[in-house]
Each structure stands twice: as C-alpha cells, then as structure tokens.
Simulated scan of single mutants.
Amino acid sequence: MQAHLSARPRVTVAAIIEQAGRFLLVEEHTQDGLRLNQPAGHLEIGESPQQAVIREALEETGRAFTPSGLVGVYLSRTRRDSQDVSYLRLAFCGEVSEADVERKLDEGIVRTLWMDADAIRASAHRHRSPLVLRCVEDYLSGQRYPLHLVATDPGVYA
C-alpha cells in the first residue's frame, strides 16, 4: 500500500553563499521553532528560478545576490500537519553585496549569520531541512553546474 503523497512538489530556491570559508544563513521562525536555513523560498508565478533566488536572498538578508552557478536540484519530503509535503529545491551559489542596513528583512527572519562548515554540521538539529547541510557539502565538494542548465520558457513571463 502506497502512502498518500502530496499531489505535486512545491518548488523552492536557495542561495548558497560562501565568503572566506563561512556561509550566510538565516535564522527564522518556523512551525517547529527557530531554525537555520540558507536564504530560500518559493518560486512565484511569472519569475524564473534565477529571479526567485535573487529576490529571496534580498528579502531574507538585505543583500543583492548574483548567482554564478547551480549547485544542485534536490527532492525532499517532510510531514506537515499530518500531511506529506514534497519540495523540489534548486540551489544556486553566488556572491552577495554588503547588507543594506535600511532594508527590513522578511517576516519571520530573526537574523542573518555567517557560519563555517563545522558549525553548520554541529547545528544540524536546528536546520529547517536536511537539505541545508546537503547543499553545503555539495558546494564544498565542488559541485557546480552552469546557470543555463535551468532554462525558463518566455511564456512564464506572459
């Protein structure tokens, strides 16, 4: 007997941002309490995944993000309110500007913080998703794909 799965995965994007051996994360309020995540969020109607990750990084960190590559595409599943929910995550790496201190961060974001890989590994129990660490490990292993691998049909913008 097959378990009831969500009808379709929710598409999310994440920004993997590393500077001098530290990664930019956000601490955010979730249904499960305070959790750590990469700057990440849902793909919205009328935008490409690259546009979505630029928007999400700005909203959650106050920093302009410039994607340089795709780290990976990940499918995960979790249980939410007695329902299975699947997520398809596109993780992009890139660079960020300095923070705009005047910009208010997205609702639910408590703060941004820079953590090295060991601190991220040690805080796995606080991650919003197991994909937080998986994306960091894939980035550290050198996994990168060109941005043109993710193509958006012009009809998306119509």
Rank of each mutant, 00 (worst) to 15 (best):
I17R: 03
G72I: 05
R63E: 08
G69H: 12
T78M: 10
L90M: 14
D84G: 09
R35M: 14
R35C: 11
A57V: 06
G62D: 06
V71D: 02
A7M: 10
A15T: 07
S6V: 05
E44S: 12
H4L: 13
Y145D: 00
E95D: 15
A3M: 08
P49N: 12
T12K: 05
V53F: 02
S48F: 04
G94T: 04
T152E: 09
A99H: 07
C135Q: 13
P67T: 05
D84F: 13
L147D: 01
T152M: 06
D106S: 13
Q51H: 08
E60I: 06
V71N: 04
R121G: 09
A57E: 03
E107H: 12
A151P: 00
R8M: 12
A91Y: 01
S141T: 15
R63C: 15
E137W: 01
L25E: 07
R79E: 10
Y74I: 01
A7I: 04
R144C: 02
E95R: 13
R55E: 08
E18L: 01
L88M: 14
R128Y: 09
D106V: 09
R80M: 12
N37E: 10
H127L: 07
D118Y: 00
E18M: 00
S141V: 11
R77N: 07
L36W: 07
E102G: 14
A40P: 02
P130F: 04
Q31M: 11
D118G: 00
V96M: 03
V156D: 02
E47H: 05
A119N: 01
A57F: 03
V71Q: 04
T66W: 02
R80F: 12
I109V: 15
L24V: 08
I120E: 01
L24R: 08
S48M: 09
L58E: 06
A52P: 08
A15I: 01
L88H: 13
R77I: 08
E18Y: 00
G62H: 05
R126L: 15
E18K: 02
W114K: 01
E18C: 01
A122K: 09
G69W: 01
G21T: 06
R126P: 03
D32H: 15
V156F: 11
S97F: 07
L133G: 03
L75I: 11
S123M: 08
E56K: 06
A119S: 07
H42G: 15
L105Y: 10
G94V: 02
L5G: 12
S6D: 10
Y87V: 10
V132R: 00
C93E: 13
R126V: 03
Q143G: 01
G21A: 04
E18V: 00
L149M: 15
H42L: 12
L113T: 11
S6M: 11
Y139W: 14
L131Y: 03
V132S: 04
G69S: 15
L70I: 10
T66M: 04
A52E: 05
R144H: 08
Y74D: 00
V13F: 11
F23G: 02
R10I: 13
H29S: 11
F92I: 09
F65S: 01
H29C: 13
D32W: 15
H29L: 14
I120T: 08
R10S: 07
L88N: 09
G33N: 14
D118R: 02
G46D: 06
I16Q: 02
E44C: 03
A151M: 10
A7S: 12
L70R: 03
Q31E: 09
V26E: 14
L24W: 09
P67H: 03
H4Q: 13
Y87S: 03
S86M: 13
P146C: 04
T78D: 09
R63F: 09
